[in-house]
Write a protein that binds this DNA or RNA. Structure first.
Lengths: 206, 206
DNA sequence: GCTTTGATAGTACACTCGTACTACCAAAGA
DNA sequence: TCTTTGGTAGTACGAGTGTACTATCAAAGC
């Protein structure tokens, strides 16, 4: 057997190249040739590790979702499980905003994929529901804990609050992407609404 | 001079065909050929009224924005200018949700255009900021009036509330598009948050 | 040392795209 | 009536696409 190549790593390399192109030139600029060139391989190599473009696109989406999940978790984890549920909620929602370039690319490509999935049956819409659903369940749980701990008012509905905040965060993220407002302005709006839920309890962060 | 054709109407016809395709098959399925076929014309006719695909796409976006504006206004107008500002706010935000097929197509195509505009300089991002900015200013104004009229608490910030509600509405709309929740569920979340702003004042509508 | 085989490279083919070009048709003005 | 001209149709071309195909290379096993 010749020089064994780590298939997983190769596929990851190619997926990264795909995301770089999709993030800079748009998802429509993702072609076998452009991805191969960006990754520094020949077209046939991309074909070798992904038998078709459809498979490549699908893997690219999975790769993106995985990286987004890791990133959010990396920011939430350190906050600690034992920490105040409100801090966790704040960390998650803040991280959901496109504040740096990497996050901006995530948002853009993810949205592009989402739009594509509506009309292209090849890209199952399942990944676009699992992630958000999981996230909403997580936030709902945190808000339940916050309510039980008396951090937020008892009249608040954790489920509806979580769903609303998540949707707001997504909407704000899109507006940042389109240049309607800056990330800081979006953060300000988000913080205002968090403050409305738990007055005086969101002033630890700068 | 031969059989005069109303250029405005022809362009509108073609734009409608474009939107039908973009709404059903996706914006990437919009080609000179597909649009011409959908409109029942030859390709050269589309070329005749739009000198290039770029111009066609741009006009399609303008046409969409115009129709969306008309639709929202048609629902807000009857509510009356003299009516309660909260009713106007409710009407606008409700209408911003994709509840019927036409609205669903609006959301989808608009989002597709928005995503495209981020990476394609040909599609100016201006239209995606003017509309939302105008809408936010309008809602902010209504909330100011509501606050002055004592319909909402004085501690609320009209600007931040308007921005948040609009972002939430957009985010909820996207989630409906992706099938994460139904339009009714999204409406429920939205109504919950309106109710939070002005308790007991959003129970007129079914 | 030779063969096998996983990995990479180059190329060709069928297809679709946007666009340019020419031809045709029919109504209005001379 | 004949010519001009706005509108419509058909077609051809170059560029770019996904994919199949073959060739080449290099390391592992005999």
């Amino acid at each position: 057997m010749p020089k064994l190549a780590d298939h997983g790593e190769r596929r990851a390399q190619i997926a990264e190249a795909l995301l770089r192109i999709a993030g800079s030139k748009g998802l429509h600029a993702v072609t076998m040739r452009s991805v191969a060139a960006e990754a520094g391989f020949a077209v046939a190599v991309v074909q070798y590790y992904f038998e078709s473009k459809e498979k490549l696109l699908f893997f690219g989406l999975q790769h993106l979702a995985r990286r987004m999940g890791e990133r959010v978790w990396a920011h939430v984890g350190p906050t600690g499980q034992a920490a105040s549920p409100l801090r966790v909620v704040d960390a998650v929602l803040t991280q959901a905003l496109p504040q740096d370039e990497e996050s901006r690319v995530f948002h853009l490509v993810y949205t592009a994929y989402a739009v594509l999935s509506v009309t292209d049956s090849a890209l199952a819409t399942q990944p676009f529901m699992d992630g958000p659903n999981e996230m909403q369940a997580f936030l709902t749980d945190q808000l339940h804990k916050a309510r039980d701990g008396g951090e937020i008012a008892a009249r608040l509905d954790p489920e509806a609050e979580a769903a609303g905040l998540l949707a707001m965060s997504a909407g704000l993220g899109t507006s940042v992407l389109l240049g309607q407002r800056t990330a800081d302005e979006a953060l300000g709006v988000l913080r205002y609404h968090l403050e409305r839920i738990a007055p005086g309890r969101f002033q630890w962060s700068p």
